[in-house]
Computed example of a mutant assay.
Amino acid sequence: MFDYISGLLSYLSGNGIVIEQSGIGYKIVCANPFSYQPLMNQDTKVYIYQYVREDAMILYGFKTREERELFVRLLTVSGIGPKNALAVLASGDPDEIIQAIEAEDNRYLTRFPGIGKKTAGQIILDLKGKLADFSVSNNVNTDAHAENTALSEALDALEMLGYSEREIHRVIPELKKQELTAENYVKEALRLLTNT
């Protein structure tokens, strides 16, 4: 399973983008390809979900892990396919979508293309109460990416080491007070986690 593809953004159209890496152009279907317009002919990182069926193998791309995770969760809902899930992401903010699901806001969910009352009800039934951990974990990573790449890398490393999102979230305020390398952020986080 791919996590992301990083390379030159060489082409953009209404339904996707092409990332060139090592002489290979990867066609990636995106929720809003034109949001990548400012990155044309630049190195770009796209988080990937590989969708496989009998007659096709499609790469779906997302700007953040949060968007990808919400896409994957939407695919678990009966009656939602990749096209519908992509339409939801193209038209809404992931945090707002999660809030609408938790608040059982049918009206908000039915504004997306291809989502009627029945499907909106199914989304709420299948996902309500199951997105709290996802929301917290990705808000942590989004904040980190916005502020500090080294801190973001350190948080990813802590996750790989098996620390829970709750544990990681607890030490972030202390880590944000310092400017360190990713390696030293990990060391400091481990010191904080073992001393609490």
Rank of each mutant, 00 (worst) to 15 (best):
N138K: 08
P94W: 09
I98F: 03
E153H: 15
H169I: 14
M57T: 08
D156G: 15
T142E: 12
E159C: 13
T44A: 01
A132K: 06
E147Y: 09
G61M: 05
Q42M: 09
G81S: 06
Y11E: 10
A144P: 04
R53D: 00
G23K: 06
G114C: 12
S135T: 04
F112Y: 14
V171Q: 13
S22F: 15
G162W: 12
E174W: 08
A90Y: 01
S10E: 14
L190T: 01
V186I: 14
G79I: 08
T196N: 12
E179W: 00
G116D: 09
N184S: 04
G79F: 06
P173Y: 05
G16T: 01
A182H: 11
Q178E: 14
R191M: 07
Q42I: 00
Y60T: 05
E66W: 10
S137V: 10
D93H: 12
D55E: 13
Y47I: 09
E96I: 12
I28E: 02
G23M: 09
R170H: 15
E67W: 00
N15F: 05
E153K: 12
Q50E: 04
L158M: 09
L86F: 08
L109K: 07
Y11Q: 13
F62I: 09
L109S: 06
A100T: 07
E179T: 11
A150T: 01
K117L: 11
K63F: 04
G16V: 02
G25W: 11
G162K: 04
L193G: 07
M160G: 14
K128V: 01
D3I: 13
P173T: 11
L175K: 06
L127T: 06
R170I: 07
P38R: 00
S22N: 15
Q178A: 14
L86N: 09
S91G: 14
G25Y: 07
N184E: 10
L151D: 12
D133T: 05
V18W: 07
A182V: 08
E159Y: 14
D3F: 04
K45F: 06
K45C: 02
I80V: 15
L39D: 06
I19Q: 05
T194V: 01
G25V: 02
L180N: 08
I123V: 15
L12G: 02
T142C: 13
M1E: 11
Q21E: 11
S135F: 02
E96M: 15
G61V: 07
R68W: 13
Q42T: 05
E66I: 05
E54I: 03
Q21G: 00
Q50S: 14
R111G: 13
I98P: 03
P82T: 11
D143K: 15
E165R: 12
I168Y: 03
L75F: 07
Q21M: 03
M160Q: 15
R191Y: 06
I48K: 09
M1F: 01
G23Q: 12
A56P: 06
V46W: 04
T196H: 10
R166E: 08
M57K: 12
L70S: 01
A154W: 11
S13Q: 13
L12E: 02
A120S: 14
E159H: 14
A154I: 05
V136F: 01
D105C: 06
S91Y: 05
L193V: 08
V136N: 03
I80M: 11
D93V: 05
L86A: 07
D43F: 10
E153R: 13
R170D: 10
G129A: 12
F62E: 07
G14L: 08
L109W: 04
E20F: 02
Y49W: 02
L86C: 11
Y11K: 12
T196Y: 12
I98Y: 03
